[in-house]
């Protein structure tokens, strides 16, 4: 078997009015946690649907674990949590879970055993009430999300695809999800998740791919991506903010090419020919009260903004997910 969980080559997907995905190629190593990042409408969901063989690409090939993604055996190894979640409302929780597991090729008896374990783990079986016997629409939203998450993992898939998994989750459920993702990685499973929240991605992903306007902007190991972005960034903390001439220095384009000002804290990128020492000296001369001055790798958030840019976000907004 291939050590690539997903191998997408030159995939194109056109819709009536626009191109959702243009010539996308990406490789996801087995056993990694992979972030599919991009602004809304970048083509993330379209890409995921093509991986799952829900929609067909117009051009290009997609293989999963070395086999074409049309193979039933391969599709049964996938667990998918869509962005828009929902279950059969009038159906009993256990029956919904059994049905979805059976569709993935699990035997009903085995499914029943695992359902009990999972319901117990997520606190859906309590001494007072077994929520597995309840109908889906009797559950709270949080509980329904847990049930949906169980349905994604019940058949112990090799590859788990989570589309915007954190949207609409309260902090407790979000933490449970993070723990579950980590556990999957430890067990050698591959996890892909798409998000536009960079903080989550930076904390959890081994590798990332940023797409905008249906094009891949950048991909690779997260550490490498950050290293390649270089240490041209300065993390600066000032006591009392940028008063007097300090603001002027920071806006000097010969020294600073980009500035992210969050009042007391600044993340700035040095201009191509600028020297960090010169900047530090000038700030001291201007009388700034410096609490921190550190050469750092840019955050994923910065890399994202730098590579995608405001324009990429804007034009991407109009398209499909």
């Amino acid at each position: 078997m291939s050590d690539l969980a997903i191998d997408i080559r030159n995939v194109v997907k056109r819709y009536e009015e626009h191109v959702a995905v243009r010539d996308l190629s990406l490789q996801v190593p087995r056993g990694s946690v992979y972030g599919l990042l991009g602004p809304n409408g970048a083509g993330k969901t379209t890409t995921i649907r093509m991986i799952l063989d829900i929609i067909l690409p117009d051009e290009g090939t997609i293989t999963l674990f070395g086999q074409p993604n049309t193979s039933v055996a391969v599709l049964d190894q996938l667990g998918y949590l869509p962005e828009e979640r929902g279950l059969y409302k009038k159906m009993q929780v256990r029956r919904v879970l059994t049905f979805l597991a059976e569709l993935k090729g699990l035997k009903p008896t085995e499914a029943a055993r695992r359902i009990d374990q999972w319901l117990d783990r997520f606190g859906l079986i309590t001494p007072e009430k077994d929520w597995g016997e309840a109908k889906v629409d009797e559950l709270s939203r949080g509980m329904q999300q847990k049930v949906q998450f169980i349905s994604t993992l019940l058949h112990d898939p090799e590859l788990v695809i989570l589309d915007e998994p954190f949207s609409g989750l309260d902090p407790i459920n979000a933490q449970a999800l993070k723990d579950a993702v980590l556990e999957l990685k430890q067990r050698g499973k591959t996890v892909i998740f798409s998000t536009h929240v960079m903080d989550n991605a930076e904390r959890m992903c081994d590798s990332v791919c940023i797409i905008a306007n249906g094009r891949k902007v950048l991909d690779g190991n997260l550490a490498e991506v950050k290293r390649e972005a270089g240490t041209r960034n300065v993390a600066l903390a000032l006591n009392g903010g940028a008063h007097n001439g300090v603001g002027e220095i920071l806006r000097d384009t010969r020294l600073v090419s980009k500035l992210d000002d969050t009042n007391n804290f600044f993340e700035l990128e040095l201009a191509p020919a600028a020297d960090a020492q010169v900047l530090l000296r000038r700030l001291v001369d201007a009388g700034a009260s410096i609490e921190r001055f550190e050469l750092v790798q840019p955050s994923l958030h910065q890399i994202f903004l730098q590579r995608v840019g405001a324009s990429g976000v804007e034009t991407g907004m109009s398209g499909h997910g």
Binding site: I54, L75, Y80, E84, R85, G86, L87, Y88, Q148
Partner: peptide
């Protein structure tokens, strides 16, 4: 219609 509006369709269609 129920499968479509409850959005359960997408999960089911990823399996069948």
């Amino acid at each position: 219609l129920e499968e479509k509006t409850s959005r359960v369709a997408e999960v089911v269609i990823s399996s069948i």
